[in-house]
Simulated scan of single mutants.
Amino acid sequence: MTDTVSFGYQDVAPEEKTRRVGEVFANVAASYDRMNDAMSGGLHRIWKDVFVKRVKPRTGETILDMAGGTGDIAFRMEPSGAAITVADINPAMLEVGMQRAAARGIDGLVWTEANAETLQFPDRFFDAYTIAFGIRNVTDIPKALREAHRVLRRGGRFFCLEFSTTLWPGFDTIYDRYSHHLVPKLGKWIADDEESYRYLVESIRRFPDMATFESMIGDAGFVQTRVEPMLGGLVAIHSGWKI
């Protein structure tokens, strides 16, 4: 790992990024889902529905939903009958998720505080690993990918939903203007937190493009890697298998 990593458009020490990201998500936890609706016009719900359909959770499987604090992905997978562990490094996000689960009468999920880079689970423990809009906030992404590979059984599958770089001509310019100028203002209006949402936008811009991230997944040991772009690559579903 390099001496510095990106925190938005800044380069900081790894431990500084971990601390700052923790502060960001502690600040936005209570308004996170409302802001997702506002920022994406509700499209994040469709992206997550498609994502879970690709994962195809099944009864009897064990699934780790990493960075899943507020429960959005776990709630979608829960009706399948899979045994789902929701893990997040941020206790504030987990608290929001547990409150939402209680309100929905969902009591079959396991909630645990965990760092994606140093998972406490044994080798070959899960059938599937999911992470949605969380990998770009990890300090050491290659290390987290290797951990995902480690905790999966042979034949296990990795699925990641993350923002990327749209390839549609002209749309990238429109989206840049929207995200850099309007999203922080929405953060101020809805969550009274402009700077946290400025970071979230900047973190998207610093995340590797689809081809580069697919290569990183392969470097972690996964095979049959695949990328499914949505909105021209503004959002992408990445997947791979452990053999």
Rank of each mutant, 00 (worst) to 15 (best):
M1D: 09
T2G: 02
T4A: 12
G8R: 13
Y9G: 03
Q10H: 00
D11N: 12
V12L: 12
P14Q: 10
T18G: 12
V21H: 01
E23A: 01
V24R: 03
F25N: 09
A26K: 14
A29N: 07
A30V: 11
A30F: 01
S31I: 01
D33I: 06
R34V: 09
A38C: 13
M39N: 05
S40H: 08
G41D: 09
H44Y: 08
R45Q: 14
I46A: 09
K48M: 05
V50K: 01
R58V: 10
G60T: 06
L64E: 10
L64H: 11
D72G: 04
A74N: 09
E78C: 00
I84W: 00
T85Q: 09
A92S: 11
E95M: 11
G97Q: 07
G97Y: 07
M98D: 03
A101P: 07
A101K: 04
A102I: 02
A102R: 11
A102S: 12
R104P: 06
D107W: 07
D107N: 14
T112C: 08
A114M: 10
A114T: 06
A114N: 11
A116T: 02
T118A: 15
Q120A: 14
R124S: 15
F126S: 11
A128K: 15
Y129A: 02
T130H: 06
T130D: 05
R136L: 13
T139D: 07
T139I: 04
L145C: 14
H149N: 12
L152Y: 01
F158C: 13
F158L: 15
S164I: 06
T165C: 08
T165E: 14
T166Q: 01
Y175D: 08
Y175M: 15
H181L: 04
L182I: 15
P184A: 02
L186M: 15
K188D: 15
E195Q: 15
A211F: 00
E214R: 15
G218P: 05
G221L: 02
V223G: 00
R226A: 14
G232M: 03
A236C: 14
H238W: 11
I243F: 05
I243Q: 06
